[in-house]
Amino acid sequence: MGAIPIIAIDGPSASGKGSVAARVAAALGWHYLDSGALYRLTALAATQHGVALGDEANVAAIAASLDVAFLEGMILLEGEDATELIRTEAVGEGASKVAVLPSVRRALLQRQRDFARAPGLVADGRDMGSVIFPEAQLKIFLTASAGERANRRYKQLIAKGEEATISRILLDIEQRDARDRARAVAPLRQIADARLLDTTEMSIEKAVQIVLDGWREISAN
């Protein structure tokens, strides 16, 4: 796997890392891993099967046997389209809760590593560079202020026709940040060899260009 080019983009909730990672992958013609989707799918499947999100053993069993398929622009869970459902705030909150469970993280470890295939992979999440792909040639820690992230999430929800309030979204983001940073296994942090990319006052296009420039710089050496 070491010979396969990998760009790992980590960062907190609603920082825009998914949008940036997907566009970088498209620009390079590489595969893309949205690791957060696997945790969202695990939380959704657990809820649908009546398993409490704090029930580590049973949630881990669901994660290990997750029946998912990533198709062109669509994510199937047990044969049903879950593309939009996993993007709801409720499922995102659930994903944050199951992601702190060590057994769940172990269950999803190899599944994530299997995404590394030629010609290359762009992976985004919380621990892509620190745990899943420590051999990644380029590691990015992409972040933005909590206020800006709340504003972006608010605009996304309103655009979908969902009810939302900035204050509630900000509180949710701050709580998720606290959980992600405090968890015992693979906490959210900027590792020493990751490049910091603060997008608080930056467009997605600019962030994508910075990542691509970083990759070209590494490739040229």
Score class of each variant (00 low, 15 high):
Ile75Lys: 11
Arg189Ser: 05
Ala69Phe: 15
Ala220Ser: 15
Lys17Trp: 03
Asp114Pro: 12
Ile9Pro: 01
Arg87Trp: 07
Ser130Ile: 00
Gly29Asp: 08
Ser65Met: 02
Gly73Phe: 10
Gly147Ile: 02
Ala90Arg: 14
Ser19Asn: 12
Ile204Ser: 04
Glu84Tyr: 12
Ala64Arg: 15
Ile204Lys: 07
Glu72Ala: 15
Asp213Glu: 06
Pro187Ile: 04
Val51Glu: 12
Leu109Cys: 04
Gly129Val: 09
Lys17Leu: 00
Val208Arg: 06
Pro134Thr: 04
Glu163Thr: 15
Leu170Lys: 14
Gln110Asp: 15
Ile140Val: 12
Asp180Gly: 12
Pro12His: 01
Trp215Lys: 12
Ala21Ser: 04
Lys97Ile: 13
Val211Gly: 01
Ser15Met: 13
Ala194Asp: 04
Lys139Arg: 03
Leu108Ser: 11
Ile4Pro: 04
Ala159Cys: 00
Leu171Trp: 11
Gln209Ala: 14
Leu157Cys: 07
Asp114Gln: 14
Arg40Ala: 01
Ala118Phe: 13
Ala45Cys: 09
Ala27Tyr: 02
Ser130Lys: 02
Ser203His: 05
Arg189Met: 09
Phe141Asn: 10
Phe70Met: 00
Ile62Pro: 00
Ala207Asn: 05
Ser96Leu: 02
Arg111Gly: 02
Leu41Ala: 14
Pro187Thr: 03
Val20Gly: 06
Asn58Gly: 12
Met128Cys: 05
Glu93Ser: 14
Leu196Gly: 07
Arg105Val: 11
Val98Lys: 11
Ala25Asn: 02
Val51Met: 11
Arg23Trp: 04
Gln112Thr: 06
Leu188Pro: 00
Lys160Pro: 05
Glu174Met: 09
Leu77Met: 07
Glu84Cys: 08
Pro12Phe: 07
Thr42Pro: 04
Ala99Leu: 06
Leu212Arg: 08
Ile169Asp: 07
Ala57Pro: 01
Ala123Met: 06
Leu142Gln: 10
Asp172Leu: 03
Ile173Lys: 03
Asn58Phe: 09
Ala146Gln: 11
Arg168Val: 15
Gly125Leu: 02
Leu109Glu: 09
Ala3Tyr: 14
Met128Tyr: 02
Gly92Thr: 10
Gly161Val: 08
Gly18Asp: 01
Thr200Cys: 05
Gly50Ile: 10
Gly50Arg: 02
Gln48Gly: 00
Ala37Ser: 04
Ala82Tyr: 12
